[in-house]
Design a protein around this nucleic acid. Structure first.
Lengths: 388, 388
DNA sequence: GTGAAAGCGCTAACAA
DNA sequence: TTGTTAGCGCTTTCAC
């Protein structure tokens, strides 16, 4: 009985809808066709219509043709993706959390490379890539909850970011890139400590003892200034913290007291800010012979500033970067190259591999020290007095 | 009665689930908590739990606290986004269709600019940006149907692409960028014809009559070769077709028979392919005095090739581009600048503006001819014989 | 090859 | 302030 009533109502509703009416209301917009209305129009069951789209082999070609034909006539574009997702429990998309400024993400070739790699992996698997709107400023975590995705990739996010916490709370798999290890979460990234230690070794071997560092933002609060050792230690950006601590360790081992090494921080990650950071550092510490930058973008700015000051590179000043972006290569920068495209791809593959795995997986990417034309031995005392 | 039965079953199911059981089945994985199970646990209705998340003012702070607390205890991360989307009829995301190779989209600064602008607009509105996995090769349109989005932005897609047709069939608003006008669809783009006509005028004024053109792919089939007038006319990439026909018109008006103008096409949009295209064109038509490229990327390649041949620019050869990307500016390229970031932003705003509008809206972006150091008067006959 | 029944997990009138 | 009711549009056993 109940079923019959329900059907009767559904039918009535359907008829009204067809004529652009709502129950008891004046004419409005014509309702969209649904799988049910299509079935009613055809006089078949919803199953059959569903099969026409999802299991073509489950019904006669003739019937299928009729279904599709009628669908076209009614302007029905196929099963509603959201309803399907609810029913099948898969969204067909992965989310990307990226709390940095978008302008950073799209302007740093290294970040774009990661994005591209991830997008490629998604494309291969036929799943969408959902960019979660999460600006660093906004505390509103709702966007994370609203994202209909089967998993998340988290990239370049401070470890105390509320969005990250929100992602981890969601009952879907997660992969982090360049982030600290998290219990039960897959991880992708280079061995930052080893890579920059090798770079530091290169500088030590050249004879540098008076070094300075130019790094990206260490925490969510802005500090376009020198960063104390304490601030370095408590940095919330894993990559920066790791690189700084590895540098500290290496230089301490080489007899350089880390507390005497100036570290300048910049919130915005641009070439101009790199130049400004280099200016600030060199103004205060003109005796520095090597400027270690934690990214190529910053290093390019430092090179520009060196040029502005009339410093020859590497004669007067050694400059190094990190990432190995194309423009750095063209500039002959000494840097550490990391395979950014692979980073994104690996993250995507990890997330999309359905393999049941017990322990969280870790992909460590190879890096390569690329000695370019911007690093050389420091000025000696004689050179300082008598010229090179 | 029926209702009571349903509740009884739900309750039983819930109790079983809590203990990691399925009805009649052995132990499996513990089911995820849902709004309903949370409500049962608390002894309140589902509405109340829903309100705790969506309408905090609809219940007492104390009860809300209890709900959230219990949610945490049960590992409930908030209402399922897909179910919510189904119910509210909004996905909180816009789709981006981009059938070009992803590697193109992420490597051309102009395309990245559009992407960034769109992402910024989405972020402002708090909606996600869903990249639809649609490689140019795959005919499989399912990804378009599977995308749970409230609207689509279509960028740089051939007008006969099946993915585009699939998007238009979906009952959601759509905005196209750099695409031909489509009945009932909003559109964003520069006035390509006017822009390149101005550029052509600049060349005509300089006295160029022997020109050649290097353009991006015209259709989905690969043709790394000269493009006949017929092929130009029937191109499926709107932007390329528009630019070529505007050039034809302008040069015909200046007394140049377009059929005599060599047009070389390249499928891949890279600097290297630009160089190879220039090589092919100049090998066959060494008398050309101006090479018009339909993008800066191609033009940069052409410049490289000119250098390789020992041609001075603009003394021996004038080269022009289109887009106004940063690297082109640095190279002093004569080009047409278009505001790519604004293009993406405008598309996003158009899509997200809920304003009821009757007629499709069109945003025409301003362009600017930027005369750089790569365009000058052609060699005269005397110069050819006696040197400049 | 086709259909009936049972939800997926949630929200939003409307009632109490 | 809280609960009841009625689906959103679809897929999927399981019968027929």
């Amino acid at each position: 009985m109940i079923k019959d009533d329900a059907r009767g109502v559904a039918l009535l509703q359907y008829v009204l809808n067809r004529y652009g009416l709502f129950m008891g209301r004046p004419i409005r917009t014509r309702r969209q066709a649904t799988l049910a209305s299509l079935a009613a129009e055809l006089g078949v069951s919803r199953t059959t219509v569903s099969n026409a789209y999802n299991r073509p082999d489950q019904l006669s070609p003739e019937l299928r043709r009729r279904v599709l034909e009628t669908a076209r006539r009614l302007g029905y574009a196929g099963p509603d993706p959201v309803a399907r997702s609810l029913r099948t429990r898969t969204a067909g998309a992965v989310g990307l959390l990226l709390t940095e400024n978008l302008s950073y993400a799209f302007r740093d070739p290294a970040a774009v490379g990661v994005l591209e790699g991830l997008a490629l992996a998604c494309e291969d698997a036929g799943v969408g890539l959902h960019l979660v709107p999460a600006s660093p400023g906004r505390e509103d975590v709702a966007a994370v909850h609203r994202a209909g995705v089967d998993g998340f990739v988290v990239y370049s996010v401070p470890d105390d970011d509320p969005h990250l916490a929100a992602v981890l709370a969601r009952p879907v798999p997660t992969v982090v890139i360049d982030q600290p290890a998290i219990e039960g979460v897959d991880r992708v990234g280079p061995d930052d400590a080893a890579a920059i230690t090798e770079l530091a070794g290169h500088l030590v071997d050249l004879g540098h003892h008076q070094v300075g560092v130019l790094c990206m933002r260490l925490s969510r609060d802005r500090n376009d200034d020198f960063a104390s050792v304490e601030r370095q230690r408590s940095a919330h950006f894993h990559v920066q913290r790791t690189r700084l601590s590895a540098l500290a360790k290496k230089f301490e081992a080489a007899g350089v007291a880390w507390s005497t090494v100036p570290v300048v921080e910049r919130f915005e990650h641009t070439v101009d800010e790199g130049a400004s950071g280099a200016r600030q550092l060199l103004d205060a510490y003109p005796q520095v012979t090597a400027l270690i930058c934690t990214s190529d973008i910053l290093a390019l700015g430092a090179l520009a500033e060196a040029g502005r000051r009339g410093l020859r590179v590497p004669g007067d000043l050694t400059v190094t970067g990190f990432d190995g972006i194309a423009e750095a290569t063209r500039a002959g920068l000494t840097t550490v190259h990391q395979p950014v495209l692979e980073k994104g791809k690996a993250a995507g593959k990890l997330l999309l591999a359905t393999n049941e795995h017990m322990t969280p997986r870790v992909v460590t990417l190879p890096t390569e020290l690329r000695v370019g034309a911007t690093s050389g031995p420091p000025r000696t005392a004689e050179e300082l007095w008598f010229g090179p």
